[in-house]
Write a protein that binds this DNA or RNA. Structure first.
Lengths: 115, 115
DNA sequence: CAGCTACGTAAGTGAGTTCTTACATATAGC
DNA sequence: GCTATATGTAAGAACTCACTTACGTAGCTG
């Protein structure tokens, strides 16, 4: 998840993803849509590839990239879980808060882990 | 969007967000759940704050953090737009592709220009 | 006031990111 | 084989990130 989110947390890569979502495109074609150098795009494509958000298909000297539906869907699912665990809970809390705040259940159990 | 996604693209920050989604917590309380130093958590909280994903409330010497429903919802909306623009389109394409593959497993017509 | 608590900020470090230019590799065609 | 095309890789500069320790600051409390 970290990898995919990090990949998405870059405007250039999101734009690349948009391009290859509509149709598969060669690396050169993609690079043509940006002002940064072609190698820079090649590196972004690698990041997206490693994150499982795009896939490649080679044909002759060309490499056709396209969005990877499976990888995207996997990330989307994880995000939905995240929203469910946070936002929906916040909504319920806000409602409960509005009614009363007498139920102060405060159980703390320290846990430890590195990021 | 970049800012919020970048904030989320870190496991520690996602865990902090999880903590302050369930209930508001002081910086010290939050830090108690991690092995990294308290200042490190303070810095993560600042990132989340700048991204609009959490909010603070001061009370005496304490600072209570909580998830910001508005900021989270805004990001979620942007993500949904992203999925709509990409994934859903991919799904339709994949389906169409599967149907086409069923039909013609022999003929090979070069279609689809790359630019 | 002194001192303690809770917390942010400063400064520095090692690792990682993003970009560049230069180079390597692979395929197609002559 | 030689050359052009399409693309990835290498190496390094500039910057950002996540972390550390040391210090500053605001509010309680004796």
């Amino acid at each position: 998840m970290d990898e995919a989110l990090k990949a998405l947390a870059d405007g250039t890569r999101r734009r690349i993803l948009a391009l290859v979502s509509q149709q598969e495109r060669t690396a050169g074609d993609i690079a043509g849509h940006f002002t940064v150098s072609r190698p820079a795009i090649s590196q972004h494509l690698r990041v997206l590839l490693d994150a499982g958000l795009v896939s490649v298909r080679g044909d002759g000297t060309k490499r056709f990239y396209r969005a990877d539906a499976l990888g995207l869907d996997a990330l989307r699912s994880e995000m939905e879980t995240l929203w469910r665990g946070r936002l929906d809970l916040l909504k319920r809390e806000a409602e409960a808060e509005a009614r009363a705040a007498e139920k102060a259940a405060n159980a703390h159990e320290p846990e430890g882990e590195t990021s």
